[in-house]
Every structure is written in C-alpha cells, then in structure tokens.
Design a binder for these strands. Structure first.
Lengths: 135, 135
DNA sequence: ATGAATGCAAAAACTTTGCATGACG
DNA sequence: CGTCATGCAAAGTTTTTGCATTCAT
C-alpha cells in the first residue's frame, strides 16, 4: 500500500479521504485535476467525501510536497502529484490538453537572467499556450 | 488629451470612468494594479465610480488590447497598460516588487521548444520568483 | 433621441472556515 | 481515550450580471 506510506512519511494521519484522493490523483489519465474534478470522481466511485475536505486535503498535500498546485486558468486551480522531477507545461489552446516538458537550456537561461540582475531564482511558473501546426 | 484618442481608436465611447481609469493606469508608479487598487484610487481622487464598472472597463480595455491582465498570485488579477513591447516578469518574493524584462534568447527558445513538438507558440506566461542576492 | 454605459445590489464561482460529530493511533 | 479529521452549512473573495437610470454622440 504505497499510498499509506506516502501519507505517513508526510506526517499525515492515514484517513479514508486522504487515501482515496491520493488514489485518484495517482490513477487518473489526466495528471492535472481540479478540486471539483476530484470531488466528482469520488462521488462516481461511491465515496461520500465533502468538497471542503477535498480542498483541505489538497492543501495539506501541497504543504507536504505531495502535490503541486497550478493556476493555468486563473479562475480554477489544478493539482498534480509531485513526481519530484521539475517540469513546465504547454497547454493546447484548442483541445485544452496539458503537456509537460523539461528543458535544461530553459532552466539555465532563467537562472542566468536572474543572476545578471543580482537576484537568485527561487521559483518560476511558465506556461506555453500552443496550437497544433497545420500539416 | 492622448487618453481620449486611445479610447476612440479602440472604438470605445469616451466616458468619464474610462478616461479616469486610463489616467490612473498611466500615472501610477506601480504599473501593475488590481481592480480593487484602481477602485480605491478613484475614490481617493473623489471619483464616484463603482467597482463593477472598473471590472467592466478593464475587461473592455483588455479586449481592445489597451491593457494586459496577469494572474501573478492566482487569487487576484492585476492589469497593466500595454506598452506594445512584449515582456515577462520577475517578482521579488520578499518585497513583492514586480520587474519587467525581455530576453530575445528566451523567446526564441520557447518558440523552438514548441516547434520541436509540432506546435506553434500562440502565447505564454512566465514569472520568475526571485530573491535579492546577499552581497 | 437612442443606444450604450453606469451604479447598485444581487448572483456566481471558487475556496475557506466554524462547529458538532466521528474516526485514527 | 484524546486528538485530529470530516461533513455540513455558512461565510469569504473575487468577478460577473440584471436592471433601471444616466450619459455620449
């Protein structure tokens, strides 16, 4: 039961809502889910967990470093399991599909741009909004 | 009266709220203001303009390309006058200061990363969260 | 004059919180 | 058992909308 250990390692009590939410984040095809998405899937699976709890649990997961929270749309946040490997995102503006990518060159460049100005890079967000090229 | 012409060029009727909001955006030291910020400054200057109007006007300005809307914080949006020159942002996480910068190399790299994957870059958001380097 | 813009208050959308109840260790 | 987590409903935030009134052209 890997999920349970993840929770214990994070110092979180192993409760049914937390386990179920972790399962959903882990098993979903779409790696990026909103609180509402998760809530709906819980209901579908017959778990009667409140939306408020979903929010609370997700926030705890974020604080514990288990998930990362993104604001791609500005209005609604989405959460993804933290794989440990940093990456950025590309969003297909037609389909809404979210893709992940990593570019060492990009990371380096961001770092350098900050250094040049006397700052150190603490964190960054980058989303490329793209469209499939016509063949 | 440059403001009035900007409005006419954008196909917007020249009304007092629109002129005043444009003035505030133009004269503020802080280039990045929230709707609430603008609303507050309007009251300070004695203009009795409703918050709903501020939102409506800002949205029209965005649609007209006069301002750009950003979601640096996820909860509250900020608006800045569109200077015409694209740039990205660096936010000092200690002071909250927002700095603008532009890197041709960065733009090129973003473009290439999309092309490599068969997409064309339509738009992007990038915010570097930084901290002043200790001397 | 006439269609568009504004103000106000109400609603919407998302998220957080208070409090009584129930579950984990 | 004591404490922490949950559920529900209520409240909080930010932003949008309906409608009567006012304003720009």
């Amino acid at each position: 039961m890997p999920d349970r250990n993840e929770l214990r390692k994070a110092g979180l009590k192993v409760t049914l809502p937390r386990v179920k939410i972790l399962e959903i984040l882990d098993s979903s095809d779409n790696r990026h889910l909103s609180a509402e998405d998760i809530y709906r899937r819980l209901l579908e699976v017959g778990e009667d967990i409140g939306l408020a709890t979903v929010y609370r649990v997700l926030n705890q997961f974020e604080a514990a470093g288990l998930v990362v929270k993104h604001d791609f749309e500005g209005d609604k946040s989405v959460f993804e399991l933290d794989s440990g490997e940093h990456h950025d995102h590309m969003v297909d503006i037609d389909s809404g599909e979210v893709m992940e990518f990593f570019s060492e060159e990009m990371e380096q460049l961001q770092h350098d741009l900050c250094e040049q100005r006397g700052y150190e890079l603490a964190d960054h967000t980058m989303v490329l909004y793209v469209r499939k090229k016509k063949a």
